[in-house]
Design a binder for these strands. Structure first.
Length: 365
DNA sequence: AAGATTTGACCATG
DNA sequence: CATGGTCAAATCTT
């Protein structure tokens, strides 16, 4: 656990550096290039960096449990590489959520994809709770894939018109890894809640127990912020110009980390998408033994350097800003990041803006 | 009985 | 036409 300090420090530095970099960009382009909206987003991004930095400091000071601190920082950081983009090729109708109600149109509408890689202990049936209620609606054998792909949609699709979906695909190379692709933003009550309250704790508990031999106890206060395995995050462009954007997935599977983490870095590095100009950020749970195998310097910062140390287009800014917006949906309830992502960029139709599913796990272990 | 899952059929897309 | 995504009836679970 001696790495916790370094981890937190790196994140802290990282956040401050981000804020500084964005501020510098903003200063340079104060009276040119960027639109008013973009500037506003930049400012929000800056504020977010400081908020997060302060958050880390506050948390550090208020808790003696380094584990929870690490969980919080990991989660916070993990929200950073999120990016979103609307396809400029789509007309506004396609962005209109109303069209989502027409299944015939769904394939042509813009979508935002979150892709997450989550690992589990071997022997698991499948992915675990991510804070939302999903209903399986299909399964399909995928060409070249060893395991079938499962399709889930939000349980509240009919009752609340929530069109969030996810796909779960077990990894060929490492069956303990599941690629989970999220599409659509939760508009249901769960999606609006900072902390989804499991409606049926028993069910969740059963799932959790099923997937983990190791259960973690929490203090009452910290029970709201139980985050688990944050594995890898990948950003990919979809072929039709749609943007996949990464977000992190606060797994509740604590028990699996030590075993599975070995495979995470290789599996993602080998991924061809990594070589095709996409970037990936590896987020490893700070308490993992394997954490020590990571470069002593902040590997995340290197990733972010790739963002900040190049000329920024407006779309780049948008990506960075959306990083910010995601953090405003901080799953940590007591953090008062109240920015509504919908308001971040007026050019984005609200209902199609998708952010991190705020996958906050309120696990009642 | 209501809700969830399974699974083959259907459909859109490239 | 092959493939992936979704539908919906049948089936299972609660």
């Amino acid at each position: 656990m001696e790495n916790d300090g370094r981890w937190e420090q790196n994140i802290l530095i990282n956040e401050l550096v981000q804020g500084m970099e964005v501020a510098r960009r903003l200063k340079e382009d104060m009276n040119a290039t960027y639109s008013a909206d973009t500037k506003d987003l930049l400012l929000q991004r800056i504020l977010s960096s400081y908020e997060k930095a302060l958050l880390i400091l506050r948390w550090n000071a208020s808790t003696s449990k380094s584990q929870n601190m690490s969980q919080a920082t990991a989660t916070l950081f993990s929200e950073s590489p999120i990016s979103i983009s609307a396809s400029p090729l789509r007309d506004d109708k396609d962005h209109n959520q109303e069209f989502k109600h027409d299944s015939k149109k769904r394939k042509t509408m813009a979508k935002w994809v979150d892709q997450v890689r989550v690992s589990f202990e071997s022997g698991l049936e499948g992915p675990h709770e991510d804070g939302y209620n999903w209903r399986k609606y299909g399964q399909k054998d995928i060409l070249g894939a060893k395991y079938p792909r499962s399709y889930y949609r939000c349980t509240f699709r009919n009752t609340q018109g929530c069109w969030a979906t996810k796909q779960v695909q077990r990894s060929d190379e490492d069956p303990t890894i599941f690629d989970i692709t999220y599409k659509g933003r939760h508009t249901c009550s769960q999606g609006n809640k900072a902390v989804p309250q499991p409606k049926s704790p028993d069910k969740h508990e059963k799932l959790q127990c099923h997937s983990n031999e190791i259960q973690h106890r929490q203090t009452s206060e910290e029970s709201l912020t139980t985050f688990g395995t944050i594995m890898t995050v990948k950003r990919d462009m979809v072929g039709n110009g749609e943007m996949e954007y990464p977000f992190t997935f606060p797994s509740t599977s604590f028990g699996s980390m030590a075993q599975e983490s070995y495979s995470l870095i290789p599996s993602t590095l080998e991924n061809e998408s990594f070589l095709s100009s996409h970037f990936q950020t590896h987020l490893l749970y700070p308490n993992m033994q394997e954490f020590k195998y990571l470069p002593s310097t902040s590997f995340q910062m290197n990733e972010l350097d790739g963002i900040y140390n190049r000329p920024l287009s407006e779309s780049d800014i948008t990506e960075i800003i959306s990083t910010n917006t995601s953090t405003t949906n901080s799953p940590v309830p007591e953090f008062n990041f109240s920015l509504d992502p919908v308001e971040i960029d007026p050019n984005f139709p609200p209902n199609t803006l998708d952010f991190s599913p705020r996958a906050l796990i309120n696990k009642n272990i």
